[in-house]
């Protein structure tokens, strides 16, 4: 199927969804979320640290059910963890901020793990299959290293390789640029742009991306959509121009706090 033909297909659809914190299900981080992500889109979910972006992403990834409302992934109600729905499950990949690699495995074993588990491959066969991916992500020197010897940024990169091993259609990434040096930021931006357009690893199929960011400045551009998660509200805003012009006080407060808008000075109501 030509990807252009199905660009209107809703990959993620939320209607009246409330998301809870993983560590405390009684604490709601967002309520009444109505949001649609279409195939091939790249959404940046922005918010301050502690606003609940990671928990929201875990819910998107299906790792916890919505506290209320209807969340559909590719037209199917979540959660999608039943064995019978594994095929759907494997269409979504997740990259954690710290990589979340398994400590008892080497980097190479971590990357090959999903292939070995889902396709019942031997160690050597799986390693051969992920070799191009490992090379593409520049992880060759660490392939036999234990995860503890890797720096945080490289652990995250290994986490990306592991998530891409099954060639998912949708990739959710938790703060992929957090704490990276400019060189690494450029590398991540380039790769994600390439995945979004259709990377050879994905046989040219554009990937749908949803990612979180505390600092959205590197993501400025015309091709991405933005949403803001702030004060228990999730606001799907749209492109960068819409974000800058948005009049909602929560969004404007956040833009000012993130130094994306000039600070108007002390507010009278706070004095």
């Amino acid at each position: 199927m030509n990807p252009a033909d199905d660009s209107d297909v809703a990959v993620i659809s939320m209607r009246g969804v409330s998301a809870a914190a993983l560590s405390d299900p009684s604490l709601l981080i967002a309520e009444g979320v109505d949001w649609t992500v279409r195939r091939g889109e790249c959404w940046v979910v922005a918010g301050m640290q502690g606003s609940g972006k990671t928990d929201f992403l875990l819910m998107i990834a299906g790792l916890m059910p919505p506290a209320a409302g209807v969340y559909e992934f590719l037209g199917q109600k979540t959660p999608i963890f039943e064995t019978e729905r594994l095929e759907e499950r494997m269409r979504l990949g997740m990259v954690f901020e710290s990589g979340q690699l398994l400590n008892h495995l080497t980097v190479g074993q971590n990357i090959a793990l999903p292939l070995r588990y889902h396709h019942d491959l031997g160690a050597e066969e799986a390693a051969e299959r992920v070799a191009p991916l490992v090379e593409m992500l520049g992880l060759d020197p660490w392939i036999h290293s234990t995860t503890g010897t890797l720096g945080r940024s490289w652990q995250r990169r290994a986490g990306l390789a592991r998530a891409l091993a099954l060639r998912p259609e949708v990739l959710v990434l938790d703060n992929p640029l957090g704490g990276l040096d400019p060189l690494q930021v450029n590398w991540w931006m380039g790769l994600l742009e390439s995945l979004s357009r259709g990377h050879p690893w994905l046989e040219g199929r554009p990937m749908t991306l949803v990612l979180t960011a505390s600092d959205v400045r590197p993501w400025r551009g015309t091709t991405r959509q933005f949403a803001v998660l702030q004060n228990h509200r999730f606001l799907p805003v749209g492109p960068w121009s819409a974000l800058e012009a948005h009049q909602d006080p929560a969004v404007r407060d956040w833009l000012i706090a993130a130094a994306l808008l000039p600070d108007p000075g002390p507010r009278e109501d706070l004095e």
């Binding site: 963890f81 954690f96 979340q100 400590n103 588990y117």
Partner: peptide, 16 residues
């Protein structure tokens, strides 16, 4: 340790 460091969530995210 696996649980506390979020590796279990990583396994679930991979469908394992």
């Amino acid at each position: 340790t696996t649980r506390a460091t979020g590796e279990v969530e990583a396994l679930e995210a991979l469908g394992i």
